[in-house]
């Protein structure tokens, strides 16, 4: 794993990630997630669905960034990821984070696979001013494997940190849970890497209806009462 990928995976990276709980806030508010024992299944479910989807598209984006490509690849990836994200609230959250991530990446000078992350990022932003998080991550990560690993890891580490903040869970214990998941995170990243070179339309579409519903409910409740996280 490159140091650049580590930088992007660091919770201190100012890419807007800290305001996303990945549905955990809504689950906690509904009493679906109360105690420490509830956390591992939630994280695993997220990794296998939203995490795999993010890793697949981050890897595909990194692959596209490193290959000679025709115009339109970023539009296609954007539309294909939209099509695999049935919840409008989840699409919105992904784009909010993508925009924030693009801002943070844009001010760094990032050596990428094609040595020119800046122009690739500009092409992504030209296709859509609010790109999906996974697509920007793929452009910035510098390698297909790095992009996949970071995406898979962030799908777990974000909600884990939200659990510490919202439920007051023991941060040492929560880190232990994440550490216990590294083999599965690696496996998800490995699967994403295997898909990276495929045509965007062929990419898998893992999803969790439960998480999609949580994302929708999160937005609805935010309008009625208050939600501290964007997702």
């Amino acid at each position: 794993m490159s140091v650049l990928a580590m930088l992007l995976a660091d919770s201190r990276f100012p890419g807007g990630g800290h305001v996303h709980s990945g549905g955990l806030e809504e689950a906690a508010a509904r009493g679906l997630l109360r105690a420490e024992a509830d956390l591992p299944p939630f994280l695993t479910a997220r990794l296998r669905t939203a995490g795999l989807l993010a890793a697949v598209f981050a890897a595909a984006s990194a692959h596209a960034a490193g290959s000679p490509r025709g115009d339109g690849v970023w539009d296609v990836l954007d539309a294909e990821l939209d099509a695999r994200t049935p919840s409008a609230a989840a699409r919105y959250a992904s784009r909010v984070q993508g925009k924030a991530f693009a801002r943070a990446v844009g001010v760094m000078v990032v050596p990428s696979v094609d040595g020119d992350c800046g122009s690739t990022l500009r092409a992504v932003l030209a296709a859509t001013p609010r790109p999906h998080h996974a697509i920007v991550l793929g452009v910035a990560a510098g390698s297909v494997a790095g992009a996949a690993r970071v995406a898979a890891y962030l799908a777990v580490s974000g909600p884990a940190s939200a659990a510490v903040r919202l439920l007051g869970l023991d941060p040492l214990w929560v880190n232990g849970v994440v550490a216990g998941m590294v083999d599965e995170v690696e496996a998800v990243a490995g699967e994403a890497v295997r898909w990276a070179g495929c045509a965007p339309a062929e990419l898998p579409a893992p999803s969790s209806p439960g998480l999609d519903l949580l994302a929708e409910e999160h937005e609805r409740h935010h309008r009625e009462e208050v939600r501290l996280f964007v997702s």
Partner: peptide
């Protein structure tokens, strides 16, 4: 949100 990761506010 105002110090370490200001992206949401800049947005």
């Amino acid at each position: 949100a105002i110090r370490d990761d200001i992206t949401a506010n800049l947005d």
